[in-house]
Amino acid sequence: MMTSPYVDEIQEMNLAYLLLAQRLLNHDRAEAMFRLKIDDEMADLLVSLNAQQLSRLAGINQLLCHFGPESAAQLRQVADNPRDQGLAHFHSSLLMASRSQAPQGGGHVG
């Protein structure tokens, strides 16, 4: 089986994402669920993972965090936002919050 030269980087990113998700959930669960676009069941699962489980989950060759199909237009709006800096942050948050929540299955964490 041929592997991509980026698999190690993907796995490192997965671990960083999972660790960040756990920290966010432990700090402020409601805000973390909103920012990660996850439900209670996924939040409970992420918080309950031990180091061995995190490592095993991070070790897959696909990114756990992902952009949804509607993300390109929203990201373009955020990137090309001409508003002043104070309103831009608020506007960007609203745009990204409007993303529909991805289905919780098929190996996607958030």
Rank of each mutant, 00 (worst) to 15 (best):
M1S: 11
M2K: 12
S4E: 02
S4W: 00
P5F: 12
P5V: 13
Y6Q: 11
Y6N: 12
E9A: 14
E9P: 03
E9L: 09
E9V: 06
I10D: 02
Q11T: 01
Q11P: 04
M13W: 11
M13R: 04
L15C: 04
L15S: 04
A16R: 15
A16G: 10
Y17S: 06
L18A: 08
L19Y: 00
L20M: 07
A21K: 01
A21L: 03
R23W: 14
L24C: 01
L24A: 07
H27N: 11
H27E: 04
D28M: 00
E31G: 06
E31H: 12
A32I: 06
A32C: 06
R35F: 08
R35K: 11
R35N: 10
K37E: 09
K37P: 06
K37G: 15
K37I: 05
K37C: 05
I38L: 08
D39G: 15
D39Y: 00
D40R: 10
E41W: 00
M42Q: 10
M42K: 12
A43F: 04
A43P: 07
A43K: 04
L45D: 00
L45R: 06
L45A: 03
L49S: 01
L49I: 02
L49P: 03
N50F: 02
N50E: 05
N50C: 05
A51F: 15
A51C: 05
Q52S: 15
Q53I: 03
S55T: 07
S55F: 13
S55L: 09
R56Q: 11
L57K: 13
L57H: 04
A58L: 11
G59H: 10
L63P: 00
L64Y: 08
H66F: 09
H66Q: 12
H66N: 07
F67D: 08
F67T: 12
G68D: 07
G68E: 05
S71I: 02
S71D: 13
A72I: 11
A72D: 09
A72K: 12
Q74R: 13
Q74D: 10
Q74N: 09
Q74L: 11
Q74P: 02
R76P: 00
Q77F: 08
Q77S: 14
Q77E: 09
Q77G: 11
V78E: 14
V78S: 08
V78D: 13
N81A: 03
P82S: 02
P82K: 01
P82R: 01
P82N: 02
R83L: 13
R83M: 10
Q85R: 14
Q85V: 10
G86I: 10
G86P: 00
G86C: 03
G86S: 12
A88G: 10
H89M: 01
F90M: 07
H91A: 09
S92I: 01
S92R: 10
S93M: 07
S93G: 14
S93E: 08
L95T: 15
M96P: 03
A97N: 12
A97F: 10
A97V: 02
A97W: 06
Q101R: 11
Q101I: 13
Q101P: 10
A102P: 01
A102G: 04
A102H: 12
Q104P: 05
G105M: 09
G105Q: 15
G106V: 07
G106I: 04
G107R: 13
G107W: 15
V109N: 02
V109D: 04
G110Y: 15
